[in-house]
Design a protein around this nucleic acid. Structure first.
Length: 995
RNA sequence: GCCGAUGUGGUGGAAUUGGUAUACACGCACGACUCAAAAUCGUGUGAGCUUGCUCAUGAGAGUUCGAGUCUCUCCAUCGGCACCA
């Protein structure tokens, strides 16, 4: 036997597999069930495949081999997302054309993938920069164009001055360009937008249909950011049509300021309005604005702020628009209007009603500019237990005051301990008719504390409501309107309080730091918290106060009633808003898919037409970015357009965001060479949607969202008949260095898959990647640990000398090793060996674990079985062969080699050809449930839940027998000090004796 | 600030979903083989002590006969979002 030499056997089998056409599938074979497993295809960068790819692609390769052996017709394709900036930037530096760089890099990637043993069919790729591919990107763009799903808009967009191009919201990180780190500025650029917002609702709802990680779905939902609310029209008090604009009447004018809010219920607390600097109102109302210069100046500074400036701005700024007022439709009140950049132009209506009492941002702004803060929602507390509000009891209203009394010289506060219910509170008392809260507070403080001299400091917080059932009065207190007043004693003059005031409670002084723990009911805790930390906006739901006819409603009720009111009075309506913006796809760069649009001499945009596709990327272009799209410099393109469309026609010079290319690539794989269609109808129907998609979590937002949008948009125009592209999605975790740090070039801790493969062999690299941690967790790449996997494979290798080839009785050639492997373990009269049970169990475990992508525990189960084999003098070939198949998805090369050599050795004459067949043509072993359940089990005996002894019993032991046996255990007896109270029996598991 | 995830030996990680905590692997220690080394194999390895008991799954409480697992509060780390009204 030779030594295990991974390098030698791996190369051999990689070549063999390629030659044998093992990687090819018949895509029209209907005799088997289909399975479509997809990888996120790589961008072919100059640095080659990284460890993240290696893990992800290994994970899918394992699943592919597993499913294939289970008898599925499995499509597991690979391709390249080959348009993109790095190749172009490299071209700018070196003058080498991106197509050349890209081609080279792809070749390198393919070599790397082959050397890891990935079984892709590279004849059936999708390469986005290939005209045969991007022809269909353009064709789909054309379809979207014809169906109004893409439109040209001029919009403030994120501009990267280093990349000299627009980038999508999703590509801005920390106000900087995700790619190059340059600060993003806002720039008005005309460009093409996909109407992804049309699908916002479906993009949220259909997440319920797919089997994706919960956090990914949640992130998508948050990104889309649905919020339900209302648009409300605030009439402008002294609105005038601009004198020089006679058409104002039928144009959209600003007789109203429209605001969007999710909190209509707070509208009686609205004390001003704010419009975003971008809001058209300002310009339209110019004539009416008294301080236009000031307003204009503010708008200009706001405009010049970069994303970063805006994000870093601590203080809210703004300017009142003098000369106009807005009228609150609910109460007719006139409120001032401000322009401030804390309101975003691009969201909602670009204007908000400000309710400082109930919104943190408005609160901050109102404090700074000393604007009125008016409470309209009261926090509500409900009694619990016996104090819960009772439906059948009368509701009575009350007004009370909580009095925080501060000691005259010490930092102590006066509290009450209640005798009948254990409450600990401040002084609480009713506000009598005609009394102000302050007057009531002073009166109550004197009555209940006995101290005489004090001064009112201030109110604490606003109105709060308590709703509860007062047991001793047999009525509901519904509501108790509470106020809180802070009082400071001026001296210690004291007189014993009257008995009637103190019979229910004792008064005590509490040190400041102990007050919080002293208080027992949430209402007073909140008063105290506000006293300590200061006033703030109350942003939660509650009960409406001082809100006209709506007073007393809960926030929730009020929202629906108020929206109804708005609709009846034509002052607004229900509205759902999304954070998601339309997807800007125009890029002023070269190495991308040309946008297949031409402009007539009148400037009208037109699709170039299917007959002119692919609308090729011109070659006579200088890449150096100048802010003008590179394609504008192409003579060839200019000539092409004029030849086809006539003089005066011009091409669209922008190319598409590369996310467009990757938004449909999974549709191409089933039919990548089709020149007539992006994919034939039959193949689409057969293969899509994707059954399992594996890739990095960094694509949670953009790629997955865009691909889902494409699917929905294409379905809408009849190109597809399903609405979610990826039925099941799993992420692989990041590969970190052994210290748990991200790998990066600058840190110099990048591990290269090639080096690892050369050092340990592909099988070890593959197996270790999946063994080291659960797939979705981070893997710390530790070269010291990979040795364990290598040893395991080496052990498997050396085991081949101990396979039992011959029948022990007569020395004849064994009979139980047959091809294809029989799923029958034993004939009926065979004795079941312990090893047979182990093998059976391992088959079950590995099968289920792979199915659930729990590769780490599958590998561990294989190691356990190998360790058991190791203890045997001889290993039955029937066991060993099954073990090899179970291991083969992880370590394809070594298992194929072992399969071929021992299959040959055990072959009967004449059957040899069959034995030569690849291990991957064998079928996946099945297990026998009957052999998994042990006849006898170890039953645990616990005393008070602690394990004290074990007993070996038959699996179906009766409850009584088990209890008897447990009680007779010597070890158990020493723990049975008292009387046995109870015995718990869990079938097949344990007996728990409670003393 | 908000949302999400995670927290188990010296290390990576297991734990049938409420039932023997620490599987498997790395590392370490000792032993076998060897002139020696490597490789391999074997044994041991959560902590503490009174050596058969106590304590251990970020901290604290709770539910339960029984909690790594469920509930609440807090802490730490990581990731994402960040004026979205």
């Amino acid at each position: 036997m030779n030594k295990y030499n991974p390098q030698k056997i791996e190369k051999k089998w990689q070549k063999n597999w390629e030659k044998s056409g093992f990687v090819k599938i018949n895509k029209d074979d209907d005799s088997k069930q289909k399975f479509y497993i997809l990888d996120m295809f790589p961008y072919p960068s100059g640095t080659g495949l990284h460890m993240g790819h290696t893990e992800s692609y290994t994970a899918s390769d394992v699943f592919y081999r597993f499913k294939k052996m289970q008898g599925f017709n499995v499509l597991h394709p690979q391709g390249f997302d080959s348009f993109g900036l790095p190749a172009e930037n490299f071209a700018i530096k070196t003058g080498i054309h991106p197509s050349e760089t890209t081609r080279k890099n792809m070749e390198n990637y393919i070599q790397q993938m082959k050397s890891l043993g990935f079984a892709y069919d590279f004849d059936e790729q999708a390469v986005t920069s290939d005209p045969g591919y991007y022809k269909w990107t353009q064709w789909i763009f054309g379809k979207f164009f014809e169906n109004g799903l893409v439109q040209k808009k001029t919009q403030k967009t994120n501009w990267c001055s280093s990349c000299q191009t627009v980038i999508a919201n999703e590509q801005v990180a920390d106000g900087k360009c995700e790619r190059c780190g340059t600060e993003i500025i806002q720039k008005e650029v005309p460009g093409w937008f996909f109407k992804i917002t049309d699908f916002a609702e479906d993009l949220i709802n259909d997440l319920d249909k797919v089997d994706w990680p919960e956090h990914t779905r949640k992130n998508q939902r948050n990104w889309i950011g649905r919020s339900e609310g209302a648009v409300i029209k605030f009439p402008i008090s002294n609105f005038q049509f601009p004198k020089n604009n006679p058409i104002s009447n039928d144009k959209k004018t600003n007789q109203f300021i429209e605001v969007f809010t999710t909190r209509v219920d707070t509208i009686f607390g609205c004390t001003y309005l704010v419009v975003a600097p971008e809001n058209a109102l300002i310009n339209e109302q110019r004539a009416m604005i008294n301080n236009y210069t000031e307003v204009e100046e503010y708008i200009n500074t706001a405009k010049n702020k970069t994303e970063l400036d805006r994000m870093e701005a601590k203080d809210k700024t703004g300017v009142e628009i003098k000369g106009i007022k807005a009228i609150n439709p609910f109460n007719g009140e006139q409120v001032p209007v401000f322009v401030a950049d804390y309101v975003l132009g691009g969201y909602g209506t670009g204007a908000v009603m400000a309710v400082p009492a109930h919104d943190e941002r408005d609160w901050e702004f109102a404090k700074k500019y000393k604007l009125e803060i008016r409470q309209s929602i009261a926090p509500v507390f409900f009694g619990v237990g016996e104090n819960a509000v009772r439906e059948d009891k009368e509701n009575t209203e009350r007004s009370t005051v909580d009095v925080i009394i501060k000691h005259w010289e010490k930092d102590e506060y006066f509290g009450l301990k209640w005798k009948y219910n254990g409450w600990k509170t401040f002084v609480i008392g009713g506000i009598e008719k005609g009394e102000s809260p302050e007057e009531a507070a002073v009166r109550e403080a004197r009555e209940e504390s006995g101290y005489k001299n004090m001064k009112v400091v201030r109110r604490i917080g606003g109105e709060m409501h308590s709703n509860f059932f007062a047991v001793h009065k047999d009525v509901n207190r519904f509501p108790v309107k509470r106020r809180c007043v802070l009082i400071e004693l001026t001296d210690g003059e004291y007189e014993n309080p009257k008995e009637e005031h103190i019979k229910n409670h004792d008064g005590v002084w509490i040190r400041k730091e102990e007050v919080e723990d002293f208080l027992t009911i949430p209402e007073t805790k909140i008063c105290w918290d506000i006293y300590l930390k200061g006033e703030r906006a109350f942003v939660e739901d509650g009960t409406l106060i001082d809100s006209g006819d709506f007073t007393g409603l809960s926030s929730k009720e009020a929202r629906s009633k108020m929206i109804q009111w708005l609709e009846e009075n034509k002052s607004g309506k229900r509205k759902i808003n999304y954070r998601l913006r339309d997807w800007s796809v125009s890029r002023q760069r070269y190495w991308g898919c040309p946008i297949p649009i031409v402009y007539s001499p009148e400037g009208e945009a037109r699709f170039v037409g299917e007959e002119n596709l692919p609308w090729t990327l011109p070659l006579d272009v200088d890449f150096v970015p100048t802010g003008v799209a590179p394609l504008a410099k192409s003579e060839e393109l200019k000539k092409r357009v004029e030849d086809i469309f006539g003089n005066g026609w011009i091409a669209e010079y922008d190319t598409m965001d590369t996310f467009v290319d990757s938004s449909w690539y999974f549709l191409r794989y089933p039919d990548p060479k089709n020149e007539k269609e992006f994919c034939s109808a039959e193949r689409l129907k057969k293969w899509l949607p994707v059954d399992l998609y594996i890739g990095g979590a960094e694509h949670t937002y953009m790629h997955l969202l865009f691909a889902r949008f494409f699917t929905k948009a294409m379905k809408k125009i009849g190109l597809l008949d399903f609405d979610e592209p990826f039925l099941k999605l799993r992420h692989q975790g990041m590969v970190l260095d052994k210290a748990g740090k991200k790998m990066s070039k600058s840190k110099g801790n990048v591990v290269n898959p090639d080096d690892m493969t050369r050092k340990f062999g592909a099988d070890s690299v593959r197996t270790y990647m999946l063994f080291a941690a659960p797939l979705e967790d981070e893997v710390m790449w530790n070269e010291e640990n990979i040795i364990g996997v290598y040893r395991f494979l080496d052990k498997v290798w050396r085991m081949q000398t101990r396979i039992k080839m011959n029948n022990e009785k007569d020395g004849s050639r064994i009979s139980n090793f047959q091809f294809p492997i029989s799923n029958q373990f034993l004939s009926s009269n065979d004795k079941i060996s312990k090893l047979t049970v182990s093998v059976n169990r391992t088959i079950k475990k590995v099968t289920e674990d792979i199915e659930n992508l729990k590769y780490n525990t599958a590998i561990s189960a294989l190691m356990i079985l190998a360790n058991e084999f190791e203890k045997q003098e001889k290993i039955a070939s029937v066991h060993y062969s099954k073990f090899l198949i179970l291991l083969s998805p992880f370590a394809p090369h070594i298992t194929e080699e072992l399969w071929s050599s021992f299959a040959k050795a055990t072959a009967d004459e004449g059957k040899y050809d069959k034995y030569k067949e690849s291990i991957f043509l064998q079928s996946w072993p099945e297990y026998d449930e009957k052999l998994i359940a042990d006849m006898s089990i170890e039953m645990v005996i616990q005393v008070n839940g602690k394990m004290r002894d074990k007993m070996s019993v038959s699996a179906d032991i009766s409850e009584d027998d088990a209890k008897q046996k447990a009680l007779s255990s010597e070890k158990v007896k020493t723990h049975l000090s008292g009387e046995v109270k109870k015995i718990i029996f869990v079938k097949g598991k344990l007996v728990n004796i409670v003393v």
